Amino acid sequence: MFSKEEALQIKKDFWIAFAEEYPKKWLLYNTKIKDVTFKFYVDNKKAQVLLDIEPKDEEKRKIYYEKVESLKNILLEDYVEDAIFERNFYLENGKIISRVWVEITGISINNKNTWNTIFDFFNEKMSAFELFFYENEDYIKDLEINT
């Protein structure tokens, strides 16, 4: 087990190593849609690439999710074949968001031997998610176009 300080240092080292391995500017929070973001997540069991749809306005969350969901076949066939869709995803704090994500298991941020696997997974899946988003962003952003 690691102390709090050691765990923080491992996380810091992990993200620095990832940035050095894949030095690119990721889309992440810059979707230009408020509360629609891409995220990387890793812990001692899994790594995930996430598309979180979490506007406070429930109707907007529903619309954005349904727009992405209407593109599900395209996403699965052409970009991220193992993406998981969840309209109502419950965060630990009880908040309900919509989420589309992909994950790998059997890795750990605490095991440097799995870092390259995680880095490659992050790069492959986030690049594919971003390409999907860029190619469909006009449709996803426009709340006037119904699904």
Score class of each variant (00 low, 15 high):
E58N: 12
E137D: 03
I140M: 07
F133Y: 15
L28M: 15
E77H: 12
F89Q: 06
L71P: 03
V68F: 09
K72C: 10
G94R: 05
M126P: 00
I16E: 14
V68A: 02
V49R: 02
K24S: 10
E144D: 10
T117M: 03
D35S: 02
L75Y: 06
I84F: 13
L50I: 14
F40S: 01
K112A: 07
E137A: 06
I33L: 12
I145T: 15
V42M: 00
L71T: 06
K46I: 02
E21W: 08
M1E: 01
R99K: 01
F2G: 00
E59A: 05
A7P: 00
K25M: 07
F38S: 01
L50H: 07
Y64T: 07
N111L: 05
L76K: 08
D78I: 03
L91C: 03
F38L: 08
N111G: 01
V36M: 11
D120P: 00
I10Q: 06
Y22P: 03
K95C: 00
K32N: 13
L76N: 04
K141N: 06
I118E: 01
N44M: 03
L28Q: 09
Y64S: 09
Q48V: 13
L8R: 15
I10C: 06
V102I: 15
T114I: 05
K39F: 06
I10L: 12
Y139M: 10
N113S: 14
I140P: 02
I33H: 12
M126C: 03
L51K: 09
I107E: 04
K125T: 10
L75F: 07
D78A: 04
F133G: 00
T31E: 00
L76G: 03
I109R: 05
I97N: 05
N116H: 15
I74L: 11
F122C: 01
L76Q: 04
K125R: 15
N88D: 14
K112W: 08
L8N: 15
T114D: 02
K4C: 00
V100N: 04
K34H: 10
E81I: 05
K112P: 02
